[in-house]
Design a protein around this nucleic acid. Structure first.
Lengths: 132, 132
DNA sequence: ATTGACCTTCCAGCAGATGGAAGGTCTATT
DNA sequence: AATAGACCTTCCATCTGCTGGAAGGTCAAT
């Protein structure tokens, strides 16, 4: 599968896919003419990368997540503990997004105009815990 | 409130806070000695920025979100439509995180070792829709 | 065999920070 | 009053994560 198709299927620009290869995230096969040749498994990895990058994980975190995804020896304790840390991080991100959603929704639906600076619901949501 | 305290309360490094000022996201007061002086409202903005950046929104998107948060004229149709677009984007991000969470959870809890390449649940989750 | 849409590598530049140097300020202790 | 240490300031260099463009090879169709 050529890089253009891989790009379409993964949602990542070709440039970015090549870059990910440069930094060692992915190692596609090559055809005789030198073109990169992506397998279906490669596409899964690319989609996986696309998703985790767009959700605010750094490239290095994505490398970890990807290795969890690919690791044959997922039994080992340290791999599990990395995975569990990532799960907690994902849970935190989900909670933050839900909070942000609530804030924005509230802004659109219920608050308008000058009441904003004093609106207790917004204060709470913006704070997400206590600011002093 | 000095920048060090603002950094603690917002979860953003001082360097980043100054950078956000450079690019015009924030305009704190200054005390007589030239030190930046952050109000409680500034801290809310910084936390807001910290959250939205960490969730994969670009600085420009954060600028939009922040202006929604601050906009006194939230009644206007175009502001509402921006906000609604952002809401849809947040919903999409939540769905992706939930999917990613399910994938990772499944990997840790149920899959181990060689079955991975053929596990249909993982295939489905990694695909999130169809890969041809 | 030429056109156009692909692909390749390489190198430059932008976005979003991040680190360090050089120096001023504040508070406390000597 | 002076010295120390922890703050703060600006400025400039560097890093990450792409992104664009040039220069050139490949492929399928006309």
């Amino acid at each position: 599968m050529n890089i253009g198709i891989a790009s379409e299927k993964s949602g990542l620009p070709s440039k970015t896919i090549r870059y990910y290869e440069d930094i060692g995230l992915l190692r596609p096969a090559r055809t005789d003419n030198g073109y990169r040749d992506y397998s279906v498994a490669d596409i899964h990895r690319l989609r996986f990368l696309q998703r985790s990058r767009s959700l605010g994980f750094s490239v290095d975190e994505c490398r970890q997540l990807l290795s969890l995804y690919q690791d044959k020896d997922r039994e080992s304790a340290d791999v599990k503990s990395i995975a569990e840390a990532k799960l907690r991080e994902i849970d935190r991100k989900i909670a933050e997004l839900v909070g942000l959603r609530g804030l924005l929704h509230h802004l659109v639906e219920h608050c308008h105009g000058d009441e904003r600076p004093d609106c207790p619901i917004i204060d709470e949501l913006a704070g997400e815990g206590m600011v002093q």
